[in-house]
Amino acid sequence: MFSMTDIKAHTVYKIVMFLPNLILLALAIFAYPFVSYMVGFSFADSLVMQIVLSIVAYFIIGIVWFFIVQAIEFVLKEIFYLLIDVSPSKGLNAEESKAVLFAGQAILDYLEFERNVRNVSYEVVDRISRQGLFGFIFKDAVSKRLWAIVDYYQKNPNDAVNQYQVKKILKNNGIAQPWYEMILNNAYVRYMVLPPMFFIYLLIEQPSI
């Protein structure tokens, strides 16, 4: 067994889990919607019933698929923990350390921002603003939101840092995150949206089986 800090173990985790995660992602985006589509269009005659059956199959298979993915990820993570003894970075608790293991420097930057929001460094804000697949597009907008949050808490030193207050700050300044940025630049949201989009495409185009 190898021992290393969570941030160092993150690099190993990305390498080890790249192929399994890629396979699971491809199955989630393409295979799961396609199987749902096949069920409806193979076992029903009328177009209405085909669509209805496909939608029902999509939700049922989706529930089963969710638990299958959870089980696979659990097994893979436990195997990783058997091989790598992960120790928390300085000042992190066990839950934060796990987040760093899976997300790396991004989580460290968010934790640094939250804990030192009244005195955060330019470097941390710059790194956070560049995060995401399309970070290069939304960098200026993200940076503007972050500095608005910093400015508020500097002017209100007694206010607690929480998600409700942050959303209120952004809303009052008219710079809340738009839905399209959330979809494009948030990996979790993006992967939640892609399967139903592909499923809807199949229902519209109705490719032959």
Rank of each mutant, 00 (worst) to 15 (best):
M1E: 02
F2A: 08
F2C: 00
F2K: 11
S3Y: 11
S3D: 06
T5N: 13
I7A: 01
H10S: 03
V16P: 15
N21K: 10
I23M: 02
L24F: 13
I29A: 00
M38A: 14
A44D: 08
A44K: 10
D45S: 12
I51Q: 06
V52H: 05
I55L: 12
I55R: 07
V56C: 14
Y58D: 01
I60V: 08
E73D: 15
F74Y: 14
F74H: 14
E78H: 14
L82R: 15
K90L: 07
G91M: 07
A99S: 14
V100H: 03
G104Q: 04
E112G: 14
R115G: 04
R115K: 13
N116R: 07
E123G: 05
S129V: 01
G135I: 04
F138P: 06
S143L: 06
Y152F: 15
K155C: 06
P157R: 02
D159C: 01
A160Y: 09
V161A: 03
Q163C: 05
Q165F: 02
V166I: 13
K171W: 10
N173D: 14
I175K: 10
I175N: 08
Q177E: 11
W179K: 09
I183M: 05
R190T: 05
V193N: 04
V193M: 02
M197K: 00
L203D: 05
I204K: 02
